[in-house]
Design a protein around this nucleic acid. Structure first.
Lengths: 187, 187
DNA sequence: TGTACATCAGTGAACGCGCGTTCACTGATGTAC
DNA sequence: TGTACATCAGTGAACGCGCGTTCACTGATGTAC
């Protein structure tokens, strides 16, 4: 049955939100269109009224979640603590889309890569602006290096089955970044 | 037709080598059993004489490739330069299995996670031992932080479609790690 | 404002397709004599 | 060493199954009068 225009907009948003959570939790390939629609409270047949294909959903979900993901804007150290925490490692569905999906994007469409590129660009800028103690000339290097280490650490921490080593990856990476972003040592 | 025992051992090795390359290039899910067998010069039906399932192949391939992947043992800076190079970014099939597969392992079997855990442990040790200029008490932090940044940088560089930004991710991460591993600043 | 009807978002059965896996068969290997 | 035969690694057709996608249908929406 037809629904109101507002309801349709709301349904589309729910599909994107459901897809965003499911993709982060399981990866693009392991989530079916029917699963996303069910999680959004709809049936799978209606999917193609909103998106032209599953690849289209992937690209639009990425753009949606990367645009809405504003991390590191304020207090960088608080962001670091939350990012490199066991809680973030263990809750991929609610976590950073870059940590959950960046590696998968290599195998997706050009549109998905474009969304990732813009998301990464703005994330680097956001971290740079949260480094007041670092000399302007060094900010970009520190922002990129820190972000690479943060993403890499969460990916590694999630890939292994030894909880102690996994915790250590997070803690040591945090300590390592702390050294790098403190005004004293970041040359 | 039956083949000699040596030929069977050789065939098994060729299956693992083919799987190792294909998995790194395309990811576990995007590579079919038939594709691996064809790349190894065999037909798909014989697969189950060597492995009990595709999941078994994934776990054994990881153990095989992580055991054979001895990086960072000698000159750490040369390893860094090669690792964070456009050449490595653009050649995933021949590249680091951690950068290519770590994020995927979260969705694989327990056996795959065990192989990754051991691979990560020995990689951290190998990097630690290649840090003679760093105080012993700091080596583990520096090794873990550097490795997380290396893996993260290659994953990010491979996920985006802007070549200039991708190159910059690699270069800036290399510069950032250089600062971290030089004796002067690593406290 | 109230009514008649065209529109179209959502439904759910059905489709082709590729996948992992199975299995009867083949023919070279390697052993028993 | 030579021969007869049991073994078994590899072959390729076939199997279920789940997936992305399609489509005829439904019934609430929203517009024309």
């Amino acid at each position: 049955m037809k629904v109101s225009r507002e309801q349709m907009v709301e349904n589309r948003r729910r599909i994107l939100d459901a897809a965003s959570r499911l993709f982060r939790e399981k990866g693009f390939d392991a989530v079916s269109v029917a699963e996303v629609m069910k999680a959004a409270g709809l049936t799978h047949g209606g999917f193609y009224g909103h998106f032209s294909s599953k690849d289209d959903l992937v690209a639009q979900t990425l753009a949606h979640v990367l645009a809405g993901d504003a991390g590191g804007g304020g207090d960088l150290r608080a962001y670091l603590d939350a990012y490199l925490s066991p809680r973030h490692r263990d809750n991929a569905a609610d976590g950073c889309p870059t940590a959950g999906l960046a590696a998968d994007i290599r195998h997706q469409t050009a549109a998905a890569r474009v969304a990732m590129t813009e998301g990464l660009r703005s994330q680097i800028d956001r971290i740079s602006e949260a480094l007041p103690g670092v000399k302007p000339a060094d900010r970009r290097r520190v922002a990129i290096g820190s972000w690479a280490a943060m993403v890499g650490a969460v990916i590694l921490a999630r890939a292994i089955d030894d909880p102690a080593l996994s915790d250590e990856i997070l803690e040591q990476t945090r300590a390592w970044i702390d050294v790098g972003i403190s005004p004293a040592s970041a040359s």
